[in-house]
């Protein structure tokens, strides 16, 4: 088992406490959804898992996140290695202003891969895994910015997959997409979980209910409830969860 173990994790931006002593184990090769009202700390929690919050100058992080038997916050841990193992996809598709091919090949090259055949093979495989190869195989060398929003987002996922991570973090990956593109990404997530651990932050509760195996509800920086998605959406344990998912506040 290669679960992500979050131990006593707290996060503050300056004086503002954003996450309060989170303790939770996230199972591997499952889709875990994090839900909660705006500003509850969902994205901050996600960004802690691959040390993205360190890019914010006054962020203070306490606690541990254990993955692959190491504490990712240990001073000896190589942050690049962490982000290679734990990839991320953002709310708005952010392809590089390069060709479709180069977008996926870029990460491979900076990781030291020089063999052109191997690079091509990995680019094609990653695009295929994201269901994009069929749609773009005749224009691999055209600009990625010409793709539709949904295609760009799948390209970003392909880019993350190319460097063979073990975990994929997705921060509102469908919020800028139309319903058809959203369903494609959701189908892709379900396909990916056979090989990767997927953690998704979403505002869309139906999306969390549709795709995830496990759901966590965050409120004011605290993890109120975490458990089986079907149970959480039919019989939540906590009144606060019930009120939030039923739309009674938020």
């Amino acid at each position: 088992m290669n679960n992500i173990i979050i131990k006593d994790l707290s996060l503050a931006y300056g004086e503002k406490q954003v996450l309060k002593r989170i303790n939770q184990e996230i199972e591997e090769k499952k889709i875990t959804a994090i839900i909660g009202p705006s500003g509850c700390g969902k994205s901050s929690l996600l960004r802690c898992i691959n040390r993205m919050n360190e890019l914010i100058p006054d962020a203070k992080i306490m606690g541990q996140i254990i993955f692959d038997k190491i504490d990712i916050y240990d001073s000896n841990t190589d942050v690049t290695e962490v982000r290679q193992k734990i990839g991320m996809v953002f709310q708005r598709p952010n392809p590089f202003p390069k060709s479709i091919y180069e977008n996926v090949a870029y990460g491979l090259r900076i990781n030291g891969l020089k063999d052109k055949n191997k690079i091509s093979e990995t680019v094609e495989r990653s695009l295929d895994d994201c269901g994009l190869l069929k749609e773009v195989k005749d224009r691999l060398h055209t600009s990625a910015t010409e793709l539709s929003g949904g295609q760009q987002q799948r390209l970003c996922i392909a880019r993350a997959l190319a460097i063979e991570p073990k975990v994929i973090l997705m921060d509102e990956p469908c919020s800028a997409l139309d319903p058809a593109s959203t369903f494609k990404i959701e189908e892709l997530m379900v396909k990916l979980k056979t090989r990767y651990t997927v953690i998704i932050v979403t505002h869309n509760m139906q999306q969390a209910a549709r795709v995830s195996d496990t759901t966590g509800f965050l409120y004011l920086g605290e993890l109120i409830e975490f458990g089986n998605t079907k149970k959480l959406f039919t019989k939540p344990k906590e009144k606060l969860t019930e009120d939030y998912i039923s739309g009674n506040f938020g």
Partner: peptide, 9 residues
């Protein structure tokens, strides 16, 4: 309305 939890039940 996509009700959940008590609303769904």
């Amino acid at each position: 309305q996509q009700p959940v939890a008590t609303d769904l039940r």
